[in-house]
């Protein structure tokens, strides 16, 4: 049973990595929007949603560090959005988002050359 579960999770893991590839591009665009203030509110909400999703599943699929970074990102966005003058917190969000982007890039790099 254990072997079956592991092989099934491995398949889901590959699918998740495919989603991370899309997220990487989206996160880079979101970071730019947040830093420039262009459509920043929508960008923050989108980031909060995506971070929440990654936080909920990453560790189960073996990406614990990415899950931790996503949790930080989600928390930062939630705090900033709740603040009346949230523009001051955007640099902190940009930092936590950059850390998440770097970790995703790291994961994808580690996957290069591996069979799907």
């Amino acid at each position: 049973m254990q072997q079956t579960l592991e092989s099934k999770i491995s398949t889901i893991r590959q699918k998740f990595i495919g989603i991370l590839r899309e997220r990487l591009r989206e996160f880079q665009i979101l970071r730019e929007k947040i830093q420039t203030g262009r459509e920043a509110t929508e960008a923050l909400k989108e980031l909060q949603f995506s971070s929440h999703k990654i936080r909920g599943v990453a560790a189960t699929l073996g990406f614990g560090h990415l899950g931790d970074l996503a949790a930080i990102s989600e928390q930062d966005v939630t705090t900033v959005l709740a603040s009346p003058d949230w523009h001051e917190g955007t640099s902190r969000i940009a930092t936590s988002l950059s850390n998440m982007i770097a970790e995703i890039a790291n994961i994808l790099e580690g996957q290069q050359g591996k069979p799907c």
Partner: peptide, 15 residues
């Protein structure tokens, strides 16, 4: 609402 979680749940309880 997360497709990956749904797949994980399905496989986990199936096992």
């Amino acid at each position: 609402d997360d497709e990956i979680i749904l797949e994980l749940l399905k496989e986990t309880v199936a096992c």
